[in-house]
Design a protein around this nucleic acid. Structure first.
Lengths: 112, 112
DNA sequence: GGTCCGTCGTCTACATTGTAGACGGATGAG
DNA sequence: CTCATCCGTCTACAATGTAGACGACGGACC
């Protein structure tokens, strides 16, 4: 009865990035957060598609913000992770932590 | 120039599970390790297919072991994570750690 | 005020990864 | 010898990851 479908790699990243931004999770910043942390480009398509699927699953939600903050209405959607999303994230985390137990040494080596 | 394709969720699990078993990473045990840690069933198909792709990418390799350990030759393939695999794993880890920075509190809450 | 430009978000299409179950070969039991 | 199992392979399909084309909006510039 455990969740059948896990969060994908990228989905998790998006969720985490939103959480990082807390209450100011605007699309642009979330995207930047991911690009910065993961050190790779994130195309708009990849980003929004994932966001869409996440919303369809009820893991994120958003609200339109006042349009006057930057004068650009379209850029002002604020995202948030739902309880369900948080829960799924924790579940994935748990599994990874369990699987990583005792491997910190191996995983931390940075090679030459 | 950073790696274009990331490790998938399940791929990472498999890699970690192999590492857990160290030098005794037989298919069966690796599979058990995952099922135990992730608390979900792992079908043979999913498992071997992933292993196959991982090998094609050069992230894991295996060797046939002597057939007399348990008397079952087919079950004696020993898997190992390659340097490239380890490297990819670390890369993914790094990204996740960065994205998770400061979120331990949120992620650790266990609800009710 | 009209035109050009850059940015945002949407959409379509396709590649990669995730997953299940059918299938065949091999082994040990009876 | 026949049966019941278990392992690993294979096929087929679902879900996730990704890029770029497209249209809309607002600002800059003339």
């Amino acid at each position: 009865m455990s969740p059948k479908s896990f969060l994908g790699e990228f989905e998790q990243m998006v969720l985490l990035a939103i959480l990082q931004q807390k209450d100011r999770a605007f699309a642009l910043e979330v995207r930047r957060e991911i690009e910065g942390s993961a050190d790779r480009a994130v195309s708009r398509g990849a980003f929004y598609t994932t966001l869409d699927r996440l919303e369809k699953k009820g893991f994120v939600e958003w609200e339109e913000a006042e349009a006057d903050v930057t004068g650009r209405a379209s850029a002002l959607r604020r995202f948030a992770v739902t309880e369900a999303g948080l829960s799924a994230l924790r579940e994935s985390r748990r599994a990874f932590d369990a699987l990583s137990r005792g491997l910190d040494g191996v995983l931390r080596e940075e090679g030459a």
